[in-house]
Every structure is written in structure tokens, then in C-alpha cells.
């Protein structure tokens, strides 16, 4: 089943056309990578899917539901979560307050408490630091908090925007391990990365975005062997 389907999506910033009619889809249970150089339009794509910026034309449907008229804040309740670029944790609030805000769209307190325990089990470090102010966490810990916050809404689809950016190699590996376990838990992931090698190694399929258009797409393993990709994105 296609959990996310994007058709002919065009987005303008003023007169600048950032996305030039891109189409892609994500099947339930997959990890799909969206790869591209800085400024290609990856963040714009995720922001548009999440309803943070309006689209000029095209269509987006989530779980068979047309998102054109759906306000951004409704998506968490519908089962979509977004780990934004640069983490964007609420830095003046504690780890626990951040996590609780992730469950804002959920009404059932008992279920939320259960999810919190699950997140703590996955990120023991967040449990240790639950009363620490988020702004004082290290970059890697903040990234875990951002992922934990997204998981608090019990999403079926998680959009992740460069989760490995600016992290030390140990944390990068840890983040990609987490993405792998999310898939094992049945969560679908749309992963935006500049780290193409890592992204392709964890993904099922991938799309290559070049200045607002999809240049290539296909099976992640095949793309990894593609001569053009190796030269342009894998630095070989």
C-alpha cells in the first residue's frame, strides 16, 4: 500500500521555483531515501509534505487521504511525524517536556505513558537525562530527543531531515542503527540525507533530487552500483 504519494509537486519561494514538479511515493514498511546536494530542495519537499509551507501545484496524499486542504498541525494526529533539519528541540524545556509535547495530539494518557517507556527503552540516555534542559544536551543527544519526540505520536510514517548532520561518526552509526530498528518495528521512513552512502545502505529505494527535479530513482542497491551516482554522490 502506498502510504505517501506525491504527484507533480511544484513549490515557489516568491519567484524562485524550488521544486519543479516532482513525483515520488513511499510504500508502507519501506525506507525511502531522498538524496541530493545542498540546495537541491530536500527540506522544501519535507516541509511541503508536512504542511509547513504551501504548495503551488500538484498533490500529496497520505494513507489515501488528500492533504491539500489539511492543516499542518493535524498531520501528527493522522500518523505522520517529522524530525526536522537541525533537530529543533525546544531548547528551554526539559527532555521530558519535549517528549510529552511530541504526544500532544494524543488523548489517551495511559497509552502516552506506555509510549514514553518505549522511547526510554530505545534511548536510555534520554531517560537518564529526562529532567535536563534540552539546550544543554550534546548534538547527538538532541538528535535522539528529536527522534524520540517524533516517535511519541506513534507515527506510521516518519520524515527525517538529515539526522546525521553535524554528528560524530559514533553518533552517525547510532542514528542509522535506530532507523533500521524503526523499520523492524513497522514504521515507514522517508529519509533525507546528504550522506548518500549511509542512506543508500539502509534504504530500500531512493530518489536523487537535483535542483528541484528528480534526476534518478530506483532500488537502493542498484543506485549504489550506478557509475554516475558513485562519482557524484559517493565521492569515488
Amino acid at each position: 500500500m502506498r502510504i505517501l504519494e506525491v504527484n507533480d509537486l511544484t513549490v515557489y519561494y516568491g519567484v524562485i521555483r524550488a521544486l519543479k514538479g516532482i513525483s515520488f511515493h513511499v510504500e508502507e514498511g519501506e525506507i525511502v531515501a531522498l538524496i541530493g546536494a545542498n540546495g537541491a530542495g530536500k527540506t522544501t519537499t519535507l516541509h511541503t509534505v508536512s504542511g509547513l509551507i504551501p504548495m503551488t501545484s500538484g498533490s500529496i496524499s497520505f494513507d489515501g487521504k488528500d492533504l491539500t486542504k489539511v492543516q499542518g498541525h493535524r498531520l501528527a494526529g493522522l500518523g505522520m511525524a517529522h524530525v526536522p533539519e537541525g533537530r529543533r528541540v525546544f531548547s528551554d524545556m526539559t527532555v521530558l517536556q519535549n517528549l510529552k509535547l511530541g504526544a500532544y495530539s494524543r488523548k489517551n494518557k495511559a497509552e502516552t505513558a506506555e509510549t514514553l517507556e518505549m522511547v526510554y527503552t530505545r534511548f536510555p540516555r534520554l531517560k537518564e537525562r529526562r529532567n535536563q534542559v534540552a539546550g544543554t544536551l550534546s548534538g547527538g543527544e538532541q538528535q535522539m530527543l528529536a527522534i524520540g519526540r517524533a516517535l511519541m505520536s506513534r507515527p506510521r510514517l516518519v520524515l527525517m531531515d538529515e539526522p546525521s548532520m553535524g554528528l560524530s561518526p559514533i553518533f552517525v552509526n547510532e542514528i542509522f542503527d535506530i532507523i533500521g530498528t524503526m523499520k523492524a518495528d513497522g514504521v515507514t521512513v522517508l529519509l533525507v540525507e546528504q550522506n548518500a552512502k549511509k542512506a543508500l545502505s539502509v534504504a530500500d529505494r531512493a530518489y536523487i533530487l537535483e535542483t528541484g527535479s528528480i534526476a534518478l530513482s530506483g532500488d537502493a542497491k542498484e543506485l549504489m552500483d550506478n557509475e554516475q551516482i558513485r562519482k557524484a554522490y559517493l565521492g569515488e
Binding site: 498541525h73 529543533r88 525546544f90 528551554d92 495530539s105
Partner: peptide
Amino acid sequence: KSGQAMLAVAQDRGAATLCGIDV
């Protein structure tokens, strides 16, 4: 919850929206 939503919106509207908060 509304109070926490206010703090979230004060700090980062976009991130608050992603949490499901109606700004």
C-alpha cells in the same frame, strides 16, 4: 497542556506545528 503548547509556540512555531499544536 495548553500552557506547554504556549511555551513550544514561543520557542519554535514550526516544530510546535510538527508536534500537532495549532499555532
